[in-house]
């Protein structure tokens, strides 16, 4: 399995568990937690695998700060910075 190019952190307090990000994620690397958060919803989380760092989950999420998207800094391989499927280029 190729190394994930990005990662996502989700604030389980802010997340309302709507699941839109889970559906929208191109590499399907998000899921809803089986457990409930204190507000009684199943918050989303990153499975820890395959995130491309595209950022689409951030844009479809209705909460301003629930999702933070990171991208791996890869100093060894020379790549165009926007390479891949960054959402903004869609």
């Amino acid at each position: 399995m190729a190394q994930a190019r990005g990662k996502v952190t989700i604030d389980t307090e802010e997340c309302k568990g709507c699941g839109v990000c889970v559906d929208a994620c191109p590499p399907k690397c998000l899921e809803l937690l089986p457990g409930l958060n204190p507000y009684g919803v199943h918050p989303a989380r990153y499975t820890g695998m395959n995130c491309s760092g595209c950022g689409i989950c951030f844009y479809v999420c209705p909460e301003p700060g629930a999702i933070t998207v990171y991208r791996l800094i890869a100093p060894k391989v020379a790549q165009p910075p926007m390479e891949g499927s960054h959402a903004a280029t869609l």
């Binding site: 604030d11 307090e13 802010e14 309302k16 709507c18 699941g19 479809v60 209705p62 909460e63 301003p64």
Partner: peptide, 17 residues
Amino acid sequence: HQTHYCPGCGHGVVHKL
């Protein structure tokens, strides 16, 4: 720490844009 909008509401998305 979170908006008053319902889960899955479009307002939050527009706000972010």
